[in-house]
Amino acid sequence: MLIPVNLTSSSSSSGGSLPPQLAPFGSDELILIEMQGTLETDSKRAGMMVGTLDIDDRTKKSTLRIGHHLLEGKLVNLPKPLAVLYRPPRPPTITEDDMDEEERSVEEEDVERDWAGAKKEQRGWDVVAVVKKKMVFSKRPMPMVASIPVAPGGSVVKK
């Protein structure tokens, strides 16, 4: 089985350049943010607000405010550069119900198989960026006492 990894400069993964204050944390179009635990949500999360990310222009310190919690981040050099691989979504295919028996078997035969019978080509990945730094929020979130209008949607949950 072969999975191509393409090194191309024409990436279609992002919607353009990031705000300039973020550029030092990764590449022009993409940054990596590392945090302890995971962001957990109950409901559908697409488009939901997570928090507010701020970068102090002078100290280059970053903070992330999620609900009542404040995270302090720093810039960390990666021990080894990371290539960020991106795989575009699977193109919409005809669902099985729409196909009758005949069509389906034709499609089965169309799949190129290699010597051992495995599917020959898999969907490939594109190298969209090389990142040498990451933004790390390594500490536990600090509760915020002051009552600031809270953005809904997310909360940090410890593992």
């Binding site: 990894v5 090194l7 993964s13 705000p19 973020l22 990596l32 949500t41 999360r45 697409a46 488009g47 939901m48 607000m49 997570v50 928090g51 507010t52 990310l53 701020d54 992330l64 080894k80 550069p81 990371l82 290539a83 960020v84 691989l85 991106y86 795989r87 575009p88 979504p89 699977r90 990945w125 190298v127 090389v130 953005a151 949607g153 997310g154």
Partner: peptide, 28 residues
């Protein structure tokens, strides 16, 4: 700036991180 969740990765594609040895990094 606001940090938001994007659309589900099934719709917008998924990512992987690959650590690069120096010679490969140069190549990329």
């Amino acid at each position: 700036m606001n940090l938001k969740f994007g659309n589900d990765s099934a719709d917008t594609g998924s990512f992987k991180l690959l650590e690069l040895p120096p010679d490969l990094c140069k190549l990329v």
